[in-house]
Design a protein around this nucleic acid. Structure first.
Lengths: 217, 217
DNA sequence: CCCGGCTGTTACTTGCGGTAACAGCAGTCT
DNA sequence: AGACTGCTGTTACCGCAAGTAACAGCCGGG
């Protein structure tokens, strides 16, 4: 029967693809984003052309890899965002979830934030004014997701469509940058960072007092 | 006289270096960060080894290039941050300065935010748990600078040292992420984005009303 | 006069992304 | 049975970019 044949092959191909992805994962998490296709193939016990048959090019493999981790992270954040608690607690929980994740697996984090979509090889596909294309897709997805949540839960007045997205991307960027810095320098325990960021979001910037001397802020 | 000789050579070397940097600038701004050393050398009218004598390796050239643009951007931001106006106006002016800069020269922006410190060639220098090393140095410098300004101008209570840095990096990250998204999609005029971000910083998140239906935010 | 230190070159090595071209091994159709 | 299809996998190659000798000319100072 042809369909059976098809399904078996399909299943096998998918399974193979998963195995390859896991091998690639190991190598990338060990060697960073500059892991070579040869190294990944060797880890999987095969040779290069097979990888190319499955993923097209290096970018394809990276994208497939990134999608898995991105989906996992987003799911965790969704959970925190939907938890039954008051608004401030949910904000804290979301920040904490993100920071806990990047703290637990910094290699994954580093990989996700640094797709570095190189062209490298034999041809140069496109090259025309690709403004803003470089930012990590994780951040974009997180920003859009948060924007959706904000837009559907709070009333931002006129133009709330765009405003929610401004805030979504802005908040995600804040979380990301602060987390990145914190992960590199570890200047304080996580809980303190969470509180500091939540306070910032909570509008303390408006209320903090000027110092007695100096031009004020 | 030996000193004269030295100075002449030094001056000449510095001038040559500047010329090379300008040539590199043209190529990088035209071809993006994956501009080849050969192309840069050709643009400068010379060949590769000279570039390597001046800058060590590709990373060195990129760092030198990035420093020039970073310094310029930071100077502009300092100006906005020190302008004589009330706090809200200064916040708006700073956001606007940044956004105007990235809008005016998106290629420079893209280059600065995507150093992509590849190793590439013959050897692999270091590879041990370099958590957080990837973030663009511009952002770090901007974050630290803003932290300094915050720390010296407002009173954040106990632990204000660390808290100021949390806020500095957080705010810079917010600005960066929102700017990046905005530059790519252009969903609204710049002024609207500035107001939205300033509002977010101004603590509207605390005060916005829940929508009448839904779980609230 | 020749030496030190610069400018510049050509020609090479190494390594990586990517691609033929080929070989074996199912299962399927006639 | 035997040709066909579609996968698995291989070796061997191309092109290109980073980085490095090794060599050649120029010029000021002992």
């Amino acid at each position: 029967m042809e369909t059976t044949h098809r399904n078996e092959q399909q299943r096998s191909a998918d399974q193979r693809r998963r195995e390859l992805l896991e091998a690639a994962d190991r190598v990338v998490l060990r060697d960073g984003p500059q892991a070579s296709m040869n190294a990944i193939a060797a880890e999987a016990g095969i040779t290069k052309p097979i990888l190319y048959r499955h993923f097209g090019d290096k970018g394809g493999l990276y994208r497939a890899l990134a999608k898995r981790h991105t989906d996992a992270l987003l799911a965790a954040l969704q959970g925190a965002l939907d938890a039954p608690a008051d608004r401030r607690r949910r904000v804290e929980a979301t920040l904490d979830t993100y920071l806990t994740a990047i703290e637990a697996r910094p290699q994954v984090y580093r990989f996700l934030m640094h797709p570095s979509e190189e062209t490298g090889g034999g041809q140069q596909p496109e090259q025309g004014f690709d403004t803003g294309r470089h930012s990590a897709p994780v951040l974009r997805r997180m920003g859009e997701e948060l924007a959706r949540v904000i837009a559907e839960r709070v009333d931002l007045g006129p133009n709330s469509e765009v405003l929610a997205r401004v805030w979504g991307h802005g908040i995600v960027g804040m979380m990301h940058a602060a987390g990145d810095w914190w992960l590199g320098e570890r200047p304080c325990p996580r809980e303190e960072l969470v509180q500091g960021l939540a306070d910032l979001l909570w509008g303390h910037l408006e209320r903090v007092d000027d110092k007695v001397d100096g031009p004020g802020f």
